[in-house]
Design a protein around this nucleic acid. Structure first.
Lengths: 116, 116
DNA sequence: CGGGATCCTGAAAGATACTG
DNA sequence: CAGTATCTTTCAGGATCCCG
């Protein structure tokens, strides 16, 4: 009984972990979420804030994230057209993951530098 | 000055985030780390604990993780041969990330189920 | 500025079979 | 049990050019 419960919980946790990996998989989703949550609103602004990303990838990811209600896209049809992206509350649920990963990355860098 | 500091910190955080994504990228590294940290030691045991993984992927990842000092591999050369994998302290530094991701996955499942 | 449309490659991952 | 060896496929991601 206790054994069964333990096994079930482990399976549940692996599944949860794999689901999360599936949702935020790839190189760009978390950096984009992070950028927008940091207050970047414009396309080029977000682009510049993420080293290495191309317009194509940013465009694709933003579109997908809008469909998935992760961000809100607003067009102000003056000329020239102005577009703004905002994070939704749902987007902010990734905060803990992003913080943990930033933290790990900083520690890792320290570790690497001490070794060298 | 304050602005410069803010910008620098943001850049530093993006880099840390991207470094972390690079290190734990792919579908399998975190689930494997999680499994071993949960006490699974044997190859087939780890394999069974991770839905969808193939022996090939597990074999490759374990080898790489051993090289990177994430795990320790011990062979007990009785017959039949016995092999055990253990997590190193370095491996455990991913704990917070994994916990945050498991937590998110569970919440996400609740959210999906409420919608349906 | 804010993207879209195409074309293309490399690496990740899957399938299957086999070994000591 | 604990893997290795091939072969194949998919697709995320890059490069480039184009548009209003």
């Amino acid at each position: 009984m206790a054994k069964a419960a333990l096994v079930r919980n482990q399976a549940e946790e692996v599944n949860a972990l794999q689901d999360t990996i599936y949702v935020i998989g790839g190189k760009w989703k978390l950096p984009i979420i992070n950028s927008i949550c940091n207050g970047n609103k414009r396309f080029r602004e977000i682009e510049r804030s993420i080293p290495g990303i191309t317009t194509r990838m940013l465009s694709r990811e933003l579109k997908e994230m809008e469909m998935n209600k992760l961000i809100k896209r607003t067009v102000y049809p003056d000329s020239p057209v102005l577009v703004e992206y905002e994070s939704t509350p749902y987007c902010k649920t990734f905060g803990n993951i992003i913080l943990a990963m930033i933290e790990w990355g900083k520690e890792h860098k320290k570790y690497i530098q001490e070794e060298a």
